[in-house]
Computed example of a mutant assay.
Amino acid sequence: MIGCLCIHGFTGDPWEVQPVADELSKQPGWLVYTPVLPGHGQGSLRELKHVTYKQWVFAVEVAAEEMRKRCDRLYLIGFSMGGMLASYIAARFPVDKLVLLNAAAYYMNPKQFVKDMFSAIRYHLTGEQEGDELIELYERKFRTTPFAAVHQFLQLVQKTKPYASKVTVPTLIIQGELDGLVPLKSAYYLYDVIGSKTKEIKVMKRSRHMICHGYEADKVIEEIKTFLTDRQTEREDDNEISAT
């Protein structure tokens, strides 16, 4: 059996990666699991002020360990903060492939963020907005996320970032060029430091932060599916391991 652990982002929930998880669940013999990180989930952002980044790390470690017991191979998909958690797990646990979606090694793209805020203002004045901007979602999160939780997020990025250089499994990095929260340099940084022999980066020209729900969601899902089901990549990785 193939296991696929999908990890959502800061202040988010499994909905953020649900389109990917749903598609991969159709694969015969695949077990796909998307846990809810402590303090997260719909309607519970206030609970984040009572949670530390260590609890997020522990939750993902437990999920990875349990899936590894049940599966012959384990793939990780991490979105935003979940990408940093996924890279940490891939560096420390037996993992076979890694997918990073708008992974937050760096955060806040000021130029695009300002554009999105102008879009929010325009929306409130005219009722018009682009379909994938999810402005209301961004605004609600900014209003309700406790500062203590933001501090924990920053600590998590700081603590997990060094582990990216220890990742050696095949890795696919996908980044939305119009992401207002995670800048493009984050993807290029991860591509440069990840130690995998097999790694690739895909930039989605029309995608913002919620990359699994935007204009190019179908393309993102197809890229992930192709990468994870490519048996040639797995054979090359197995040969590299056996030769060392």
Results as ranks from 00 to 15, higher is better:
residue 1 M to K: 13
residue 2 I to F: 08
residue 2 I to M: 12
residue 3 G to N: 01
residue 9 G to V: 03
residue 11 T to D: 00
residue 11 T to P: 03
residue 12 G to L: 05
residue 15 W to G: 02
residue 18 Q to W: 10
residue 21 A to K: 02
residue 27 Q to N: 11
residue 34 T to P: 12
residue 38 P to R: 09
residue 39 G to C: 11
residue 41 G to R: 04
residue 42 Q to H: 02
residue 43 G to I: 14
residue 43 G to N: 11
residue 43 G to E: 13
residue 53 Y to F: 14
residue 54 K to Y: 08
residue 57 V to C: 01
residue 57 V to H: 03
residue 58 F to E: 00
residue 59 A to Q: 04
residue 65 E to N: 08
residue 67 M to R: 01
residue 70 R to Q: 11
residue 72 D to Y: 08
residue 73 R to T: 14
residue 75 Y to E: 03
residue 76 L to S: 06
residue 76 L to N: 08
residue 79 F to L: 02
residue 80 S to E: 03
residue 82 G to Q: 12
residue 83 G to I: 01
residue 84 M to H: 03
residue 85 L to P: 07
residue 85 L to S: 04
residue 87 S to T: 02
residue 87 S to D: 01
residue 89 I to S: 02
residue 89 I to R: 00
residue 91 A to Y: 00
residue 92 R to L: 02
residue 93 F to L: 10
residue 94 P to I: 07
residue 98 L to P: 14
residue 101 L to R: 02
residue 102 N to K: 05
residue 106 Y to E: 13
residue 112 Q to W: 01
residue 113 F to V: 01
residue 114 V to R: 10
residue 114 V to P: 02
residue 119 S to D: 06
residue 119 S to V: 01
residue 123 Y to A: 07
residue 123 Y to H: 09
residue 125 L to E: 11
residue 126 T to K: 04
residue 129 Q to I: 10
residue 131 G to E: 14
residue 135 I to R: 04
residue 139 E to N: 10
residue 141 K to N: 10
residue 142 F to A: 15
residue 143 R to L: 15
residue 145 T to H: 05
residue 147 F to M: 12
residue 148 A to F: 05
residue 154 L to Y: 06
residue 158 Q to L: 14
residue 159 K to M: 06
residue 161 K to S: 10
residue 161 K to Y: 09
residue 162 P to A: 06
residue 162 P to L: 05
residue 165 S to R: 15
residue 168 T to E: 08
residue 170 P to K: 06
residue 174 I to N: 02
residue 175 Q to I: 07
residue 180 G to M: 09
residue 181 L to Y: 07
residue 182 V to L: 08
residue 188 Y to R: 11
residue 189 Y to Q: 08
residue 192 D to T: 12
residue 194 I to M: 00
residue 196 S to P: 09
residue 198 T to Y: 08
residue 199 K to Y: 06
residue 201 I to F: 04
residue 201 I to C: 14
residue 209 H to C: 14
residue 212 C to D: 01
residue 212 C to K: 02
residue 213 H to D: 05
residue 217 A to K: 15
residue 217 A to R: 15
residue 218 D to M: 05
residue 220 V to E: 10
residue 220 V to M: 12
residue 227 F to Y: 03
residue 233 T to I: 13
residue 234 E to H: 04
residue 239 N to Y: 14
residue 239 N to M: 15
residue 240 E to T: 08
residue 240 E to S: 10
residue 242 S to P: 00
residue 244 T to C: 11
